[in-house]
């Protein structure tokens, strides 16, 4: 039995190894499946997966499966997806119950006495800290209420060649992978060089959960008042284009 994960959201899980009206259900993004035997036909892998709370046997195309990542990296992706699903794939808002309470949980992860009711306190960095802390295995990460704090530390670690769970790199230096972070400036343009010498500036980061042909898909907090996807374009060589005010990518070293 081999563990695999869904590469995309709404992956079809089928009763028989062929296309057609044989769907047992669908797998969510990054969902775990257990491949139970050899490939059948041109793509079909026999597998078991949790569908509507029950473990079901069926078939899934190998083209929409990926290998597991390293422990901490996989845990980080899984935690982001879990929160995204908890916010109904980004459709539920921060000011609705019980989602207000979930935002309060994010704040508590960095020791802030906030309950999520105050919408004027931005919680996107608290979400990142919550996800990284919950995933585990990221000792040394700078948990903070502001993105720029951990971005600065990650860039310094890279420039000093120091051990750190994330290294901050220029977007031309690293192709984003699952579990990395994409960082963009807000309001006022920030460069990589500025972020290397300052730790207080307006920024936002999201965590990469899918790498496609021309973009990466990320999950972040306080994105349209929810936990939600953002798409960032990548070029033909796999590097971020910089569109969307992106100035750095944090490489996951775990």
């Amino acid at each position: 039995m081999t563990k695999q994960h869904a590469l995309a959201d709404h992956v079809n899980f089928r009763k028989t190894p062929k296309f057609g009206s044989n769907r047992l259900g669908s797998l969510h993004l990054a969902q775990e499946v257990n491949v139970t035997g050899a490939q059948q036909g041109d793509r079909w892998m026999p597998a078991t997966a949790a569908i509507d709370g029950a473990t079901v046997s069926g078939f899934v195309s190998k083209n929409v499966l990926r290998d597991p990542l390293s422990g901490p990296r996989e845990a980080l992706v899984q935690e982001c997806v879990k929160q995204w699903l908890r916010f109904d794939r980004g459709k539920r808002k921060e000011n609705e119950q019980p989602f207000v309470r979930f935002v309060g949980e994010f704040w508590q992860s960095i020791g802030m006495d906030l309950d999520g009711l105050d919408r004027d306190v931005p919680w996107s960095a608290a979400f990142i800290s919550f996800a990284v802390r919950t995933a585990g295995g990221y000792n040394g990460f700078r948990f903070a209420a502001a993105h720029s704090r951990y971005v600065h530390k990650a860039i310094r670690a890279k420039l000093d060649n120091a051990s750190h769970p994330f290294w901050g790199l220029k977007i031309s230096e690293h192709k984003p992978e699952l579990g990395d972070m994409v960082c963009r400036w807000r309001s006022s343009k920030i460069t990589y060089a500025h972020a290397a010498t300052h730790e207080a500036f307006q920024s936002h980061c999201d965590i990469v959960v899918q790498v496609a042909g021309d973009h990466v898909l990320t999950i972040g907090g306080n994105v349209s008042h929810s936990v939600r996807h953002t798409r960032y374009k990548i070029n033909a060589r796999g590097f971020l284009t910089g569109e969307g005010n992106v100035y750095a990518v944090l490489k996951n070293n775990r």
Binding site: D120, R186, S187, Q202, V223, H225, T230, G244
Partner: peptide, 13 residues
């Protein structure tokens, strides 16, 4: 209160 494709309004305290 600036709305954009990527950012929520007034996202810094």
């Amino acid at each position: 209160l600036v709305a954009s494709e990527y950012d929520d309004v007034c996202g810094t305290l």
